[in-house]
Design a protein around this nucleic acid. Structure first.
Lengths: 163, 163
DNA sequence: CTGTGTGCAAACATTTTGCAAGCAG
DNA sequence: CTGCTTGCAAAATGTTTGCACACAG
C-alpha cells in the first residue's frame, strides 16, 4: 500500500489536537511527548519500551507508565495507533501512519525478510468488506526455510548418514 | 464443515497419546477430558471457558484451571492446538484438526471469524518462490472492528456528548 | 475557576510456579 | 516404586483504577 505517504509529524499533531478538542480533552506536554516519541522511532513498542524512551527523552516531564497506557489507548481508540497482542507478554503498538508490511520468517535461522504485496492487501480488504469489518491492521507471517538453510540442510543430510 | 473432513476423535486421541509417550509424559483422565471437550465443541476457547466446560462435563475429575493451562500449552507446543492473543483479555485456543483457515479478529470484543481464501494462499506461494523460501506454514490474522462494535462505538460517542 | 490530566499506589485479570500429595506406567 | 501430574495457593506479569494534587482552557 505504498500509495499512502507517511504522515508528516505536523499533520499528525494537528489530527491529534483535533481529536482531543472534539472530545473535550486537553493537549498536554506528556501527550505530545508520547506522540513525538512514537513518531520518531516508527517502530513497534510495548508500553514499557515507550515508557523508558519517553523518560529518557523528556526526563523533566517525569511521565508515568499509567499515562503511557492511557495515551496509547486514546490513540488506538481514535485510530492514530494500532496494537498487536502477544498473550501474557502484552501488546505492541505502532503509529497508524505507515503502510502495512509483512514478514517471511526462516524457521531455521530466524532470518526475517520484509515484503509487501498489494494484491494480497487488496484481497484482505475484500474479505474484511465481506464480513463488514473495519480493518485496522493485519499480521501475515510466512514461515519457511530460506535459501541458505535449505542448502545447509542438504549438506547435513549428506553428512548424517547414520540417522 | 466444508471440503476437508475434520480429523476423527480416535485419530486425534492416538496422535495425542503418541506425543505424550514420545516425550515421556503420561496419559491422564484430565488430559483426555480436555482434549475431548475441545474436540466436541470445535470452537475458540479461553482457558476459563474450557475450564467451566470441563468442570461441567467431568465434575468427578475436579480439574483445576492450572491443568487447563498446562494442557493447552502442551497441545500448542505439539501443534495440536493453536492460539490467538488478546492482550489483557488473554488467549483463545482452538484444536488444530481443522482444514487450514485464517482469522478475522475484532480488537474490541474479541470475536473471531474464520475464513479461507485460495487466491491469497496462491499469492503467498508466489512470494515464497520469489525469495527462494521453502514455505512450511503461515499465519494470517486480520485485525479490525466488527460490525456490532462499530455500531456500539458510534452509540458511545453520541452518549458521551452530555457527560 | 472548572474539570480534565497526572503520578502514585493499590487493585485487577490472566497466567505461571512452588509444593505436597496422588496416580500412571 | 519412580517420577510425572495434579490442585491449591502464592507469585509473577501486564494493565487499569481510585485518589489527591496539578494544570489546560
Amino acid at each position: 500500500m505504498k500509495n499512502i505517504e507517511a504522515l508528516a509529524y505536523k499533520e499528525l499533531l494537528e489530527t491529534f489536537k483535533t481529536i482531543l478538542k472534539s472530545n473535550g480533552l486537553k493537549f498536554t506536554a506528556q501527550r505530545e511527548a508520547i506522540l513525538r516519541t512514537l513518531y520518531d522511532h516508527a517502530d513497534h513498542f510495548t508500553p514499557e519500551n515507550l515508557y523508558f524512551l519517553v523518560k529518557e527523552r523528556y526526563p523533566q516531564l517525569n511521565t508515568g507508565i499509567t499515562t503511557i497506557y492511557r495515551t496509547l489507548n486514546l490513540l488506538e481508540e481514535n485510530k492514530l495507533a494500532t496494537s498487536i497482542s502477544f498473550g501474557t507478554q502484552g501488546k505492541k503498538f505502532e503509529l497508524g501512519n505507515k503502510p502495512h508490511h509483512d514478514h517471511l520468517i526462516c524457521t531455521k535461522c530466524g532470518k526475517i525478510i520484509e515484503f509487501e504485496d498489494t494484491q494480497i492487501e487488496h484481497l484482505q480488504q475484500k474479505i474484511a468488506k465481506k464480513y463488514n469489518f473495519e480493518l485496522t491492521d493485519h499480521l501475515m507471517q510466512l514461515y519457511g526455510i530460506c535459501e541458505e538453510c535449505q542448502q545447509n540442510q542438504t549438506k547435513q543430510r549428506e553428512e548424517r548418514v547414520d540417522i
